[in-house]
Design a protein around this nucleic acid. Structure first.
Lengths: 300, 300
DNA sequence: AAACTGTTTTTTCACGATAAAAGACATTAT
DNA sequence: ATAATGTCTTTTATCGTGAAAAAACAGTTT
C-alpha cells in the first residue's frame, strides 16, 4: 500500500474552506505556502476541484464555480497522519486498559492490531521514548514504565524548574519585545473565555498550551522549549481521560493564569515567582489526583 | 542483505576472552546472561568454537581445548551495531567538514554514502533529534542546527541546573546508601589516575562520565538521568576532536572532581554547591573554547 | 523437581521497492 | 525580468520480506 495521501486530502479540505471566501484562487506557489504543501500537491488539489466542478482552471485563471458542499470534503479520519493514528491507538491501549508497569510492548503485535507496517510503529516508539514512559531493551522488546505517580512527580519537578526560570527570563524581557503584545492578546482571550466559561470550558486546554509555550520560549533554550512537548502530550491525554470537575478546574486555572499574567506585566520577580509557583502547584495537584495510587489495568 | 550478525560476533569475541580463564564453560543460560545475549546466540557461538577446535562440546560438557589466538577473533569493525556505524559517519561529517548551520540533511544521500538502508538512517535521525542538533521539516528534509556556541550554552545551562539539584540530592542521601561506597571507589580511581596522569590521561573521559552519572542518578528523576545522554554524547565527540592540552585539562578536572567528592562526603550543602559550580564552570569553558566563533566547515 | 539441552516459533532489524510529496528545471505569460 | 505554469527528477513515507536474534516449548539429565 506504501503511502497514504493524507497530506493531499487534508490540504484539499482546507482549500475547500478557502473557496467560500473568494471568487478565484491565487497562484500555485502562493496556495502552496498558504496550505503548507508543495506545488505538486496544490496541482493535485486543483485538478480534482476542476474535475468535481468546483472551479474552472485554465493556467492562471482559477475561478470558483460553486460553493463546496459537505460531501466535497474528504472524511476527517482520512486526513490523519499515520503517526497520529498510531499515537492514538497506543495511548488508548495505555489509558483504557492495558498498562501494567513492566509490561512488554510488542512491535509486531501493535502493528498488526493497528493495521500498519512495523517500520512505522518502530519509528513511533523511538519518537515516543523521549516522553520517558517506555524504554528499549537492546535487540529486544520495549518495556512500559507506566503512567505512575512517580512519573508525574518527575515530570512536574522538571516542569517547575524550567518554568520558573522561563518566567523570570520573560519578566526580564525589554518592554519593546513582541512577547508583550502576545501576552496582552492571551490575556484578552483568557478574559473572554472566563466570561463564557459555562459553554466554552473545554477550550481551555488549547489556550493553556499556547500560554505556557509563550513563556517557555522566553528561556531561549531549545531543551526547555522542547521539554514542553512532553508536558503538552501528557496533559493532552490527561484532559481526555479525566473529565471530573473539568469546568471548575479550568475556571481556577484561568484565574491563576490571570494573576500570573499580571505578575509578568508588573515585572516584579518576586510576584512572578509566587504566581508561577502557585499555578504549577495546582496543576501538579490536578495531574496527581487523576492518577490512581496503583494504576493497574488488565491486558487487552 | 537484511541483518548483520554483529551481536553474535561481538559476543563471540567476548566469549573468547572468557576461554583464557577457565578449563570449561558454564551452562548455556548462564553464558547467555554473562554475555548479555539469548541462548540462540550462545549456541551459535558454541557451535563455531567447536568447529574451530577451541572447545569440545557435548551437551553439558564444554571443555576448553586450546587458547584463543588473535586470528580467532572477528575483526573489531564487524562487531559494531549499525546504529554505531551511522552515528560515527554522521558525526564525522558534522565535525570534520560539512556542517553549516541551516544545511539540509538528505536521508537517501546519507544512506548511500554510508552504505546502509534508508530505514536505519531515518531511525538514527529520529533518535538523534533529541540531542537538539537537528530538526525535522514535516514531510520533508531534516535541518542541521549546527554545533554552535548557542548550542553549547543552552546545553550547559540545563546541565548546571540538573547537576546542582542532583548533587544536593546526593549529599542528602542516608549514610547507609550504597552510593557512598560507589563514591569511595570512584575517589580511589581518581587518585590512581592522578598519580599516573602522564601515561593515562586519556582514560579520564570514561571516568568522568561514570562520576557524573552516579551523581545524576541521585536525582531519581528519569528526565535528569536521561539528559546526561545528551551531555555524554557531546563530550564524547568533543574529546575526540579537541585534543589541545588534553592532559592539562584532565588533570585540572580530576582535581576539581576530588574537591567535589570531598564536598559531597562532607554533606555540607554550601560546599557541595560551590564545588559543583566551580567544576561545571570550567567544563563549560573547555567546551566553549573548542567551538570556534563561527564554526563553518565546507561540505564534504 | 530444578536446571539444562534440543527444537520450534516469534520478534526484531534491516533492506529494497513503490506511491506520495517535494523539489528542480524548462518554458511561457505578464 | 519576474513570476507564473508545465514537466521531470529526487526524496520521503511506508510496506512486505527475510535473516538474525530472542523467546517459548518440549524433552533430558542430574
Amino acid at each position: 500500500m506504501s503511502k497514504s495521501n493524507n497530506v493531499y486530502k487534508d490540504a484539499y479540505n482546507r482549500c475547500l474552506r478557502l473557496l467560500d471566501e473568494t471568487r478565484s484562487l491565487p497562484s500555485e506557489p502562493e496556495l502552496g505556502t498558504l496550505l503548507g504543501v508543495s506545488r505538486t500537491t496544490v496541482r493535485t488539489i486543483l485538478a480534482r476541484m476542476e474535475e468535481t466542478g468546483l472551479i474552472a482552471w485554465n493556467k492562471r485563471a482559477k475561478t470558483v464555480l460553486r460553493e463546496p458542499r459537505p460531501y466535497d470534503f474528504f472524511p476527517e479520519e482520512e486526513t490523519d497522519t499515520l503517526a497520529e493514528i498510531i499515537e492514538r491507538s497506543f495511548m488508548r491501549r495505555l489509558l483504557a486498559g492495558g498498562a501494567e508497569a513492566g509490561m512488554q510492548i510488542n512491535e509486531l503485535e501493535l502493528a498488526r492490531e493497528i493495521g500498519v507496517g512495523t517500520t512505522s510503529v518502530r519509528e513511533f516508539l523511538i519518537r515516543f521514548s523521549r516522553f520517558g514512559l517506555i524504554e528499549k531493551r537492546r535487540n529486544s522488546h520495549w518495556v512500559l514504565k507506566g503512567f505512575t505517580r512517580a512519573f508525574a512527580l518527575e515530570l512536574t519537578e522538571i516542569r517547575e524548574m524550567f518554568e520558573l526560570r522561563s518566567a523570570a527570563a520573560f519578566a526580564a524581557l525589554p518592554q519593546d519585545s513582541a512577547v508583550w503584545v502576545d501576552l496582552d492578546r492571551l490575556e484578552d482571550e483568557h478574559r473572554q473565555l472566563a466570561s463564557e466559561i459555562a459553554s466554552r470550558f473545554n477550550e481551555f486546554s488549547e489556550l493553556d498550551e499556547r500560554f505556557h509555550r509563550l513563556i517557555h520560549r522566553a528561556s531561549h533554550n531549545r531543551f526547555i522549549v522542547d521539554f514542553y512537548d512532553v508536558i503538552a502530550m501528557i496533559f493532552h491525554y490527561h484532559y481526555q481521560w479525566n473529565k471530573a470537575q473539568e469546568r471548575e478546574r479550568n475556571e481556577v486555572a484561568i484565574g491563576e493564569h490571570l494573576v500570573y499574567i499580571e505578575a509578568l506585566k508588573s515585572r516584579d520577580l518576586g510576584k512572578v515567582d509566587a504566581a508561577c509557583r502557585k499555578h504549577l502547584k495546582s496543576a501538579r495537584q490536578t495531574l496527581l489526583t487523576s492518577i490512581p495510587e496503583s494504576r493497574s489495568l488488565q491486558k487487552s
